[in-house]
């Protein structure tokens, strides 16, 4: 049976006039709960029957009947009303407070989580700044050291120029004749093949003396400290097997410069 058929089955009229069995009545009420149109039909039918043949009694009857009823007195009414209404207000206010506080709670939780996220971002940024700063400091310290080397008037600047096998190669050696310190700055050198490494030689009294291997790591400061040497007349760079050779390979001389 469709809702429409149910409504027009006549059961609602019977429900209003009170002729249904308990089972039928419960059924109608269940239908009314489920279907708004059934509920509306009940209300409309009731209003129709209430309106049908209604007859307004004489006005005086209202007062007369009131006199026969045990109506809660005027003194009690406002008190009761006040009590119940103040209780109602209290309940309403509490509910409002509860709802409000729940909403506020959600807002606060959301804000807290946002704030935590922001804090995490700021912390990680801060860490980055600290590490950047450390790196910059370190870098600055290195630069200052390198500057000191360059600015030291006791350091002799020796240009090592590219030989025929690498005409564009270039390096500068800074050699302190007083404390014997040697630094090299490689400006340009072809990258060494695997298993090979550049080696710096000092020519002392016409003989090559090993003063260290070149570390081509680009992350290191440009000026590399080499082994100290005394009485060098010239410096040269050869390509040797990794770790260096006791004597230079004269066929693989890349750079050479006289003091």
């Amino acid at each position: 049976m469709t809702v429409e058929e149910y409504i027009s089955s006549g059961i609602i009229e019977r429900y209003i006039v009170g002729e249904l069995s308990e089972k039928e009545r419960i059924d109608v009420e269940a239908m009314a709960m489920q279907y708004p149109e059934v509920k509306a039909e009940i209300e409309l039918t009731e209003a129709t029957l209430m309106n049908f043949a209604s007859k307004t009694p004489p006005v005086r009857l209202k007062q007369k009947i009131a006199g026969r009823l045990d109506i809660n007195t005027a003194k009690v009414i406002p008190l009761n009303e006040k009590k119940s209404s103040s209780l109602m207000w209290l309940v309403a206010a509490s509910l409002l407070l509860l709802v409000g506080s729940s909403i506020y709670n959600v807002i606060l939780t959301t804000k807290l989580s946002e704030t935590e996220d922001q804090l995490a971002v700021i912390n990680s940024q801060n860490q980055k700044f600290v590490s950047d700063f450390d790196a910059q400091s370190k870098s600055y310290g290195e630069m200052a050291q390198q500057m000191a080397i360059l600015m030291n008037p006791n350091n002799n600047k020796v240009m090592l120029k590219g030989m025929d096998i690498a005409p564009t190669a270039l390096a500068i050696v800074y050699w302190n004749k007083q404390n014997k310190d040697v630094y090299i700055n490689v400006n340009a050198l072809p990258s060494a093949a695997d298993g090979m490494q550049y080696q710096l030689w000092a020519i002392v009294d016409g003989k090559p003396v090993d003063i260290g291997m070149l570390d081509m790591n680009p992350d290191l400061p440009p000026l590399h400290k080499m082994k100290s040497i005394n009485g060098a007349q010239a410096f040269a760079v050869t390509l040797e097997k990794k770790g260096g050779s006791p004597t230079p390979n004269m066929n693989a001389m890349y750079l050479m410069g006289n003091v």
Partner: peptide, 8 residues
């Protein structure tokens, strides 16, 4: 309800 009841 008075009018409806009185009507009945």
């Amino acid at each position: 309800y008075s009018a409806s009841l009185y009507g009945i």
